[in-house]
């Protein structure tokens, strides 16, 4: 089971749920399961990068997860050039 955390002020979209343990092989699978449960996350997710065990990825769908993996949703660094 990997754990995804919604600590970056995403609570309004998850009904206050701050983390979720999900059985998923890859980040994309995990996000599919999370979006089924919290469809309101779809829009904010579009501007999020994904941190997997501390490494921040802009494109994370195929990154494998292990049991104990920690996944965080991190706002993308728009850097003034959106």
């Amino acid at each position: 089971m990997a754990t995804i955390y919604f600590s970056s002020g995403l609570a309004p979209y998850t009904g206050g749920v701050e983390s979720l343990a999900v059985d998923a092989a890859r980040v994309g699978d995990l996000l599919r399961i999370v979006l089924e449960r919290f469809p309101a996350l779809r829009e904010p997710l579009e501007i999020m990068a994904i941190a997997v065990d501390g490494e921040i990825h802009q494109h994370a769908d195929y990154i494998p997860l292990t049991s104990g993996s920690e996944v965080h949703l991190v706002p993308r660094i728009a850097g003034g050039h959106r």
């Binding site: 993308r76 728009a78 003034g80």
Partner: peptide, 15 residues
């Protein structure tokens, strides 16, 4: 301030 169009680095500033 983003200037004329959206997209300041406010989010990065927060992080």
């Amino acid at each position: 301030e983003a200037g004329a169009y959206k997209g300041s680095p406010a989010g990065a500033g927060a992080m």
